[in-house]
Nucleic acid binder design. Structure first.
Length: 285
DNA sequence: GCCAGCCTGTTG
DNA sequence: CAACAGGCTGGC
């Protein structure tokens, strides 16, 4: 469901509310969803920070030493909890005690009585706990490419990666998290439209000038989408249940059969790497 | 590369 | 009923 701008919006919505709160207990209702290979404790964890990398949320947790003996005056262990929402995952902060919803798989009970629920209809999403430092063993997380808004995503980097993946279709490259972290189906289609590039074009066959424009549009679209708190195309909401409103700026995504906002040509839909792909056959050469 | 598979729900 | 859905992995 969520791509980088939605995950970032969830992060921002939650951090104000729960940073420095303490998780009294993590309750798991479905064993597949919570992965705890390091056998870390699931109680008394203070939330030191919430970060984001690509489509992952990272919770920095610290184990509280309950019996504060005179000798050990502080907590010892640090934990990094990775959360990936995949297609339908949600993190929802409940301010009052309620029964877990049908597809709530993991629940975090906070010390102030609030509850953070991880809910996921299709159960593709994962909550993974690592001893701090061990998160680099996570395949998906460890192999992420640069952040589109970060300093490493330079035009030079982008031109190079397009050479390295010269035979792949440009849309597949944009969806490849090892090349760039955080783009998904919506923003891949939207950035290619804004750069006037046909999604089926091979990365290696696109002019430097067009790729430079695409690089710029990726940064622009992602920044705008964060500014508008993400795209609520169907049911996306942030950690407090608020919808985003970037959907009103979508030009092609799910607009097949409709007129291109620029040239009025009918938007087409096709399939690339198994994903529905929307484009204007006139504007995107 | 592509494509099934992982899941359940919604839409045509 | 089949097709499809904002993602990713692993097997060919």
């Amino acid at each position: 469901m969520p791509e980088l701008p939605e995950v970032e919006t969830i992060r921002i919505s939650l951090i104000k509310e729960i940073r420095y709160k303490r998780i009294k207990e993590i309750i798991c209702y479905h064993p597949d969803v919570l992965i705890n290979s390091d056998k870390l404790p699931l109680t008394n964890l203070s939330i030191q920070n919430i970060r984001r990398r690509g489509k992952y949320l990272l919770f920095d947790l610290e184990v509280f030493d309950q019996d504060k003996s005179i000798t050990s005056n502080q907590k010892t262990d640090k934990i990094v909890m990775l959360i990936h929402l995949r297609m339908t995952g949600k993190l929802l902060l409940e301010k009052t005690t309620i029964e877990p919803a049908k597809h709530t798989h993991v629940r975090f009970l906070l010390d102030n009585g609030q509850i953070l629920d991880f809910n996921d209809v299709r159960r593709f999403g994962r909550v993974t706990l690592y001893q701090a430092g061990n998160e680099v063993q996570d395949q998906g997380y460890a192999s992420l490419g640069p952040e589109p808004l970060g300093p490493n995503f330079t035009e030079e980097y982008f031109l190079n990666i397009c050479q390295r993946f010269s035979r792949s279709k440009i849309k597949s490259l944009l969806l490849n998290q090892k090349a760039i972290a955080g783009l998904g189906n919506i923003y891949a289609d939207e950035t290619l439209f804004r750069a006037g590039i046909n999604p089926s074009n091979r990365a290696g066959k696109i002019s430097k000038k067009k790729l430079a424009l695409l690089h710029e549009k990726i940064r622009e679209v992602i920044a705008q989408a964060i500014g508008h708190r993400g795209t609520s195309f169907r049911d996306y909401v942030d950690g407090l249940g608020q919808k985003g409103f970037f959907q009103i700026y979508l030009a092609v995504y799910q607009k097949d059969g409709q007129a291109c906002p620029v040239c009025k040509t009918t938007i087409k839909k096709t399939k690339i790497s198994g994903r529905s792909t929307h484009y204007c056959p006139y504007c995107q050469i």
